[in-house]
Structure formats: structure tokens, C-alpha cells
């Protein structure tokens, strides 16, 4: 119940934020020289996944921001909903403040609240996000849970332009834990990786880009052992279909 509320409330907020700020943007800028406040909402992933064990998932990875060139407030939301079980395998929301530290990189800090099926977690987040040389989009985060468990996540993405409209996106997401958190099935060391390859087409500007592709998820070390002990899988292949959205 709480989980459902959490899920719906962030959606409601995502919808409401742009409306409120859009009005502000019009009324605030009465000259040509001082556009200051900006907002944006994006779903990097909004997709249906079908696994090699016939598991069906609804997955999203979204973020919304409001702010200036110097400081942005950003909401990141990440979820995996098991359609048959009607349960969130993963439900992660972050609220971070973000500011530039170099030409191409920002730092961010804030909180992350996980409310999936099973135990909840709250973390402090410290991260770096930006564009690395050779056009790799990089997002690296360090998490410290309330109980002091630390972990790190690295997300890298590369867009290959087949044409200016057909775009192949390769992505890699790796999680490492520096301490064990048995209750949520996380072992020390490399926890998991998610690798994706998706071919999309920009149908309406860059605001609606349907795609299809494959995603490979794998758990490692103790984390894999915990998953096996619990009767779960340690490696999954998914066929995915979805769309990138931005407003």
C-alpha cells in the first residue's frame, strides 16, 4: 500500500512540477537577456521486458529537474515492476541537488529511498554525472545506507548514430558493495551488472523515441549465492520494447 502510494505520488509530482514551473517561466522572463530557470522531464527507459524464464517486467528510469545553470534540483526514479507477481522488484527514488564542477561534469548530493517488495532502505547519495571524452555519458554514485552499508554504482552509456534518427544505445550499469547487506540480498564485492543494447528511432523530435533491444542482467559473488539460496535467478536475458520520452 505504502509502496503503491510512493509510486503514484512521484508520478503525480512529476506531472505537477512542469505545470507549476511552466507558468513561472513565462511570467518571470520579461526581457530577452535573463532566462534563468529551466525544467525538464525525461524517461530514459520506459519499457516492457520479457525474460528467458518468461518473467514479465515493467521498467522505468526517469528524472525530472528544475533549476538554473548553477544549481538544479533533480528527482531520479528507477523501478522494476513484476507484472505477474504484481510487486516492485526494484523501486528507487532519489532527490538530489546538482551543480557543475567542470565543463562537462556535475556533482550531486541527496537522498535515495528504496521501497521495493521487501525491506526498505534509505541512503545518502554522492555522485558525479557528465559527459566523458569520446561521448560517453557517465553517472557514478556512492551510497551510504542508514546502517552504514556503502555501495557504488557506475552507469555508462554510448549513443551510436546509425543515422540522425536511428540511434543504437549501448549501456552498462555496475554495482559494487563495500559491505554486505544480507537482508536485501547484497553481498560484498561486485553485486550486479546490467548491460543493454537498444535500437531506437526518434519519431517525434527527441520527445518520443520508440526502441527495442536486449538487456542482460547478472549477479556476482555472494550476491549470486544469496539469490540462488532464495530460489532466484543469477542471470537473465530480456527482450525489451519501450520508448524514450522527454517533455
Amino acid at each position: 500500500m505504502i509502496r503503491q502510494m510512493a509510486a503514484t505520488s512521484w508520478l503525480a509530482l512529476l506531472m505537477a512540477a512542469p505545470l507549476a514551473t511552466a507558468q513561472a517561466a513565462v511570467s518571470e522572463q520579461e526581457d530577452t537577456q535573463s532566462a534563468r530557470y529551466f525544467w525538464g522531464v525525461q524517461f530514459e527507459e520506459f519499457e516492457y521486458r520479457y525474460s528467458d524464464d518468461d518473467e514479465e517486467l515493467g521498467v522505468w528510469k526517469a528524472d525530472a529537474f528544475y533549476g538554473t545553470d548553477e544549481f538544479k534540483l533533480r528527482w531520479l526514479s528507477n523501478g522494476e515492476y513484476a507484472i505477474e507477481e504484481q510487486a516492485y522488484e526494484q523501486l528507487e527514488n532519489q532527490l538530489v541537488g546538482q551543480m557543475p564542477v567542470s565543463d562537462f561534469f556535475d556533482v550531486k548530493a541527496g537522498v535515495r529511498i528504496d521501497t521495493p517488495e521487501g525491506p526498505d532502505r534509505t541512503y545518502a547519495v554522492l555522485g558525479v554525472t557528465g559527459l566523458a571524452p569520446q561521448w560517453f555519458e557517465v553517472d557514478a554514485n556512492l551510497y551510504v545506507s542508514k546502517d552504514g552499508d556503502t555501495s557504488a554504482e557506475l552507469d555508462a552509456e554510448y549513443e551510436l548514430l546509425i543515422t540522425n534518427y536511428w540511434i543504437l544505445v549501448a549501456s552498462l550499469d555496475a554495482t559494487v558493495a563495500f559491505s554486505e547487506d544480507r537482508e536485501i540480498g547484497v553481498g560484498k564485492g561486485l553485486v550486479s551488472t546490467e548491460t543493454g543494447l537498444k535500437l531506437g528511432y526518434d519519431l517525434i523530435d527527441r520527445s518520443f523515441s520508440p526502441y527495442f533491444g536486449v538487456v542482460h542482467e547478472r549477479k556476482y559473488g555472494d550476491t549470486a549465492d544469496f539469490a540462488e539460496a532464495g530460489g532466484g535467478s543469477t542471470e537473465d536475458w530480456f527482450a525489451v520494447v519501450g520508448a524514450r520520452l522527454s517533455f
Binding site: 517561466a25 532566462a35 529551466f38 525544467w39 525538464g40 525525461q42 545553470d69 551510436l160 548514430l161 546509425i162 543515422t163 540522425n164 534518427y165 523530435d205 527527441r206 522527454s246
Partner: peptide, 19 residues
């Protein structure tokens, strides 16, 4: 401007491709 701030190449459809 909002789109450009989100992604500076939002409107650029002349980017160099694999071809």
C-alpha cells in the same frame, strides 16, 4: 531553450553518423 539546456544537440540532425 529548455530543450537546448537539456541537450545541446536536441535540434541537430546533421551529426556525423556511422555511415
Amino acid at each position: 531553450l529548455r530543450n537546448l539546456k537539456m541537450s545541446a544537440d536536441y535540434y541537430n540532425r546533421q551529426q556525423q553518423t556511422v555511415g
